[in-house]
């Protein structure tokens, strides 16, 4: 009756060996560093220039037709505590041992975004100019992107009956109209500026080189998580601003290498389902055999 213990073990081992063999051959290839597209657009936020006026927060909500966030500290105020379904950008304040600094949070527009990798259906894609864009028509609301993002950016509209994911798309509708993003347009001190990533990176390095005592000696986003299109320079350490210490590997690399390996050439599924089919066949044959 049924398969023997021996057969089951043999089948499992065979499947496991096939997966292991496939992954051994493909893992090194996935680690190749990614280059930003030549026309990649982004933002440069200089924490030393920001005065915390929140004009960008308000203008962003207006440009993206977002309702004021009154769930934060007090219903009297439009006060998002962090990125939320009502806020694609938010100004936070660090006050501690390393001094004080404002921090503008928004989507980093990673060169190799974890959200795009995690999205099972292609609602999040890397669009022209490297903008990580969202297509609500495809979204199934699984919120994998929320969990995958190392910067905790995509937010789900919990209070909506037809919820969407809310995240900065670099005002791509405004860009199409020839305007710049709302936040950079209204910033009174040009603390956040808009441009091509290559130019912004150069400008950031120029500012650091011009005043090395003022700035932290590197540009956050140049290499973090494989590089981001939104860059930060600051006078306080980046981890104090809530920017996680990440290595140069793109955030989705590990998960992607496993998953892409498992499904490489569709070998593993074929092996697995082949084995299952064999088991079923054997079971049927033994069931059809008359009882001894």
């Amino acid at each position: 009756m049924g398969i023997t213990r021996r057969t089951a073990l043999k089948t499992m081992l065979a499947g496991g060996a096939a997966v292991a063999g496939a992954s051994a051959t493909t893992t090194p290839a996935a680690a190749a560093p990614l280059e930003a597209p030549a026309d990649a657009l982004g933002l440069l936020y200089d924490a030393t220039l920001c005065i915390g006026c929140k004009t960008c927060v308000v203008k962003c909500q207006e440009a993206n037709h977002l309702e004021p966030d009154t769930a934060g500290i007090d219903a009297r105020y439009n006060a998002p505590l962090s990125l939320s379904a009502h806020a694609k950008t938010v100004i936070k304040l660090y006050k501690g041992d390393e001094g004080e600094s404002f921090m503008k949070a928004q989507c980093m527009h990673c060169i190799d975004p974890a959200c795009v990798s995690a999205c099972m259906i292609g609602a999040l894609t890397k669009g022209p100019n490297g903008i990580v864009k969202y297509n609500v028509d495809y979204c199934v609301g699984c919120r994998y992107c929320e969990i995958a993002c190392p910067f905790n950016v995509p937010k789900f509209q919990w209070s909506s009956n037809t919820p969407q994911i809310v995240k900065c798309e670099l005002c791509r509708e405004r860009l199409a109209d020839g305007q710049e993003p709302a936040c950079t347009e209204v910033c009174p001190r040009h603390a956040v500026i808009f441009g091509k990533r290559a130019d912004l990176l150069q400008e950031a390095k120029r500012r650091i080189a011009a005043e090395p005592d003022k700035y932290q000696p590197r540009v956050y986003g140049e290499t973090e998580a494989g590089g981001t299109q939104c860059l930060y320079i600051s006078h306080v350490p980046f981890d104090k601003l809530g920017l996680p210490a990440l290595d140069d590997r793109p955030a989705p690399e590990l998960a992607r290498s496993i998953q892409h390996t498992v499904y490489k050439g569709f070998i593993a599924p074929v092996v697995l389902y082949g084995a299952l089919g064999m088991v079923m066949l054997r079971n049927r044959r033994s069931a059809e055999k008359p009882e001894a």
Partner: peptide
């Protein structure tokens, strides 16, 4: 409040 606006305070980093 009609059209709420941001307060003169800031959320912490976390």
């Amino acid at each position: 409040i009609f059209r709420p606006t941001p307060p003169d305070t800031y959320p912490p980093i976390n």
